[in-house]
Design a binder for these strands. Sequence first.
DNA 1: TGTACATCAGTGAACGCGCGTTCACTGATGTAC
DNA 2: TGTACATCAGTGAACGCGCGTTCACTGATGTAC
Lengths: 197, 197
Amino acid sequence: VKKSKAETAETRKRIVKVASEVFRSNGINATGVSEIMSAVGLTHGGFYRHFDSKEQLVAEACAESLEVLAEGYGAAADKGEMAFLKVLEHYLSAEYRDSNECACPLVANGSELARADKEIRQVATRGFENLIEIIAKRYRANGSPTAKADALFTLTAMIGAGTMARVVDDPELSDQIFQVTRKRLASRAGKPQRKLA
Amino acid sequence: VKKSKAETAETRKRIVKVASEVFRSNGINATGVSEIMSAVGLTHGGFYRHFDSKEQLVAEACAESLEVLAEGYGAAADKGEMAFLKVLEHYLSAEYRDSNECACPLVANGSELARADKEIRQVATRGFENLIEIIAKRYRANGSPTAKADALFTLTAMIGAGTMARVVDDPELSDQIFQVTRKRLASRAGKPQRKLA
DNA sequence: TGTACATCAGTGAACGCGCGTTCACTGATGTAC
DNA sequence: TGTACATCAGTGAACGCGCGTTCACTGATGTAC
């Protein structure tokens, strides 16, 4: 049942796309190759026509997630400070958390990625650096003399907040984490000389 | 080969202790019951004389890790601001990261805990709240009117920084994450009116 | 205090299960003439 | 343009393996008399 080259290429992309979603919602170790292939509508045996190993898929899925995230951040950043802040704050909201999606693999899979293969960590690092650059550019446009440091602090703080908001069992505490993080990151977003709220 | 009650109780504690270390270094899903029992010097079969399930052990190991962490934080906090800051900064240092230990399960296992059982998340939440209270008390002593918010922001930002410093493949970038986080958290530690660095 | 017996910590084989991966096979696709 | 053949995407059974958990067994511990 050979498929055309176009179909084959599209199937490969669909596998990566689906994997990026499933890994983020269920975890990397906890997700089997079969589960992904079923979600794509295929059987597991065909997987190795497209990838050398599960690890290769993890790397590509992680890259895909981070690229999509960067597109969103980049588009918002280009629309000015308010639009950008709005996107950041969306990721730090209870509604978004409760949607049971998590666009960011650094939040959804952070501690698994820290123990992953060299190749996977490389991909994660590149994606992280890319996000940092997008955020730093926004801060630079706002006149911050410490834009890269601002960006590093903002993004890592967001990742910590996103992670803990999902760990914590108590919705009120989870909301408080989001609230304080939103408030403090907004107050320093490109305005390094402003007082803390 | 029945053991005395004292021995049995001690064995149980050792299993929890060892598990708390192994889960933090190798991950929760990636660590088998056999691996932990071997590290304790026993065979896997005896595990269920002490615990109902692996999940129960995960919960107790997580609690143990967070209690030990809280003791360290608490002791440092009682010694004044400088001692406390020194401890916080230790956890945000390259030497500590490279020791391949990670005392904090919220960093080491964050994304796994977010998907864990109700009981495990409850334990993690209680441990997190306990840490928040210790940090908030320190900030309160420094005269901050927003001590709990300060503590939430500080700890979640530390968790994000610790996680990303371990994900990232490039030691320089990893060090930058620590550096900026140390600097900014120190500058606002209990001094909410101070300008940003 | 000494003896008889129930308890139960720890052993190691075994359970069913799902994992990542391989493989013989099918049949449509793409290519060479 | 039509035919013959090699390619290869996808199937589904099978591989070895390690997982969490169970269980019959051993023999020292703790208890009842």
